Amino acid sequence: MIATNDNEGRFPPVEPIAAGLKGCCPRCGRGRLFSGLLKLAPSCDNCGLDYSFADAGDGPAVFVILVVGFVVVGLALWAEVSFNPPLWLHFLLWIPLTVGLSLSALRLVKGVLVTLQYANKAAEGRLDR
């Protein structure tokens, strides 16, 4: 799905998933989405899009916990059954792996969810009166 929001004549269409994975602006596809590891920039430095609309909430954390937890627990169980390593080796292997996978995946998932939120014009639900 190609993003077609406001200013569609000024900016070429951007594929939201690719832009999110690269950490790029959902409107122009060139500016930075993040100002830190996980902190969103206030606006795009290329096209000026204000990122105040973006609210990924707990969505990225939930996806990352489920996927990384499944992978790490599966690997830890396999290692325990196959090799029966001591407990200190489990800690040495799985804690750094969990932290590394979680931080890298969290940035990717947050970027994708923010760009999809822009592309689909998602907003907080409102009651019609």
Results as ranks from 00 to 15, higher is better:
2 I>N: 02
3 A>M: 00
3 A>R: 13
5 N>S: 08
5 N>M: 10
8 E>V: 10
8 E>T: 05
9 G>H: 08
10 R>W: 05
10 R>D: 02
12 P>Q: 08
12 P>H: 06
12 P>F: 04
13 P>R: 04
14 V>Q: 00
17 I>D: 03
18 A>Y: 08
19 A>C: 06
19 A>V: 08
20 G>M: 06
22 K>T: 11
24 C>V: 12
24 C>I: 04
24 C>N: 03
25 C>A: 10
25 C>H: 06
26 P>W: 10
27 R>K: 14
28 C>W: 05
29 G>D: 08
29 G>S: 02
30 R>Q: 13
30 R>Y: 03
31 G>D: 04
32 R>F: 05
33 L>E: 04
35 S>D: 08
35 S>M: 09
36 G>A: 12
38 L>K: 03
39 K>Y: 07
40 L>N: 09
42 P>V: 14
42 P>M: 05
44 C>V: 05
44 C>P: 06
44 C>H: 06
45 D>R: 03
45 D>N: 13
46 N>K: 03
47 C>L: 10
48 G>Y: 02
50 D>Q: 07
50 D>C: 02
52 S>C: 08
54 A>L: 12
54 A>S: 15
54 A>E: 01
55 D>T: 14
57 G>S: 13
59 G>Y: 02
60 P>I: 05
60 P>E: 01
61 A>R: 04
62 V>F: 14
65 I>H: 03
66 L>Y: 10
66 L>I: 09
72 V>W: 03
72 V>P: 04
73 V>Y: 10
73 V>W: 11
73 V>E: 04
75 L>I: 00
76 A>N: 07
76 A>P: 02
76 A>L: 04
77 L>Y: 11
77 L>N: 09
78 W>P: 00
78 W>S: 11
81 V>Q: 15
81 V>A: 14
83 F>Q: 13
86 P>M: 10
87 L>K: 06
89 L>S: 07
89 L>V: 14
89 L>R: 13
90 H>I: 09
91 F>D: 08
91 F>N: 01
92 L>S: 13
93 L>P: 00
94 W>L: 01
95 I>V: 15
96 P>Q: 12
97 L>D: 02
99 V>I: 13
100 G>W: 12
105 A>N: 01
106 L>V: 11
108 L>T: 06
109 V>W: 06
109 V>C: 04
110 K>S: 13
114 V>D: 09
115 T>Q: 14
116 L>M: 14
117 Q>A: 12
118 Y>M: 10
118 Y>Q: 02
119 A>E: 00
120 N>W: 11
121 K>C: 05
121 K>T: 06
122 A>M: 15
127 L>W: 12
128 D>M: 08
128 D>K: 07
128 D>Q: 13
129 R>E: 13
